[in-house]
């Protein structure tokens, strides 16, 4: 039995086990939120799968207080795992024939979003007061959910204030759902559920092009990852300047 326990305690096996658990929890969340007689098309289900994977993955990530690997590597591997999980959920929830282009698009979008979200999340890790890491992580997850659902809860206000096209477009663009929808070639704001729950689908709006969305989220990720390096560089430069001045 020693070799069995040796295998089970290997970091790679633990990682795979945790990933499978995340996929399972994401699938359970979908089953809980979407009724059996769901009116959703397979594209809508794909988008829901990607969102569920990222949010559940983020919650599981919050539960882990520390990460033993360097942060950029950790962000990329976690994001790849989320993308793979999203693709698995798409396969599970789509009874029809698989569309490879759709799978690649959704996998890419999930990866890009996960990189941006994980990079931002990683920033919490580098803050002081590490014992609050987990609670801050849950607050961060709640913020991600709020931003994702912005067209839903801000919709009535946009309608009531007769918001201009630019404002509506900005709100729509900020939601990760819009990025996933554009990659799926699916106008989610006019899907039955969203149309009935937010007036945004009744206003004038436009989605950004696919490249603009991908570029924007990647830039956000790079910026989040670069912050500690840039701040360290600025701090060193400042210290060097102060020291240099003191000597002279």
């Amino acid at each position: 039995m020693t070799w069995v326990s040796a295998v089970w305690t290997r970091p790679a096996v633990i990682e795979i086990g945790e990933w499978l658990l995340t996929v399972l929890l994401a699938q359970l969340t979908l089953m809980l939120l979407i009724p059996a007689t769901n009116p959703f098309s397979h594209k809508a289900l794909s988008i829901a799968g990607c969102v569920a994977m990222i949010i559940v993955g983020l919650l599981c990530r919050c539960a882990r207080a520390t990460s033993p690997v360097p942060e950029a590597f950790a962000v990329v591997t976690w994001s790849l795992a989320m993308a793979a999980g999203a693709c698995l959920l798409i396969v599970i929830n789509n009874p029809g024939p698989l569309d490879a282009v759709h799978m690649i698009s959704m996998g890419t979008a999930t990866f890009v979003l996960a990189v941006a979200i994980a990079a931002l999340h990683q920033r919490l890790h580098s803050q002081r007061n590490n014992n609050k890491y987990t609670s801050r992580g849950y607050t961060f997850t709640a913020a991600v959910v709020l931003v994702t659902l912005m067209p839903l809860w801000l919709g009535p206000w946009l309608d009531w204030l007769a918001a201009g096209e630019l404002t509506v477009n900005a709100i729509v663009a900020a939601s990760p759902l819009s990025y996933l929808a554009v990659m799926a070639d699916y106008d989610y704001l006019r899907s039955e559920w969203f149309y009935q729950h937010t007036p945004v689908g009744m206003l004038r709006y436009d989605y950004l092009p696919k490249l603009a969305y991908s570029g924007g989220w990647l830039l956000l990720a790079l910026a989040a990852l670069a912050v500690p390096r840039v701040s360290a560089w600025v701090r060193n430069a400042f210290n060097f300047y102060v020291l240099h001045k003191a000597r002279h």
């Binding site: 009116p39 098309s41 070639d185 699916y186 106008d187 006019r190 039955e192």
Partner: peptide, 8 residues
């Protein structure tokens, strides 16, 4: 027929 694509 809906707005186009996959919508309701």
């Amino acid at each position: 027929i809906g707005y186009g694509g996959d919508e309701r």
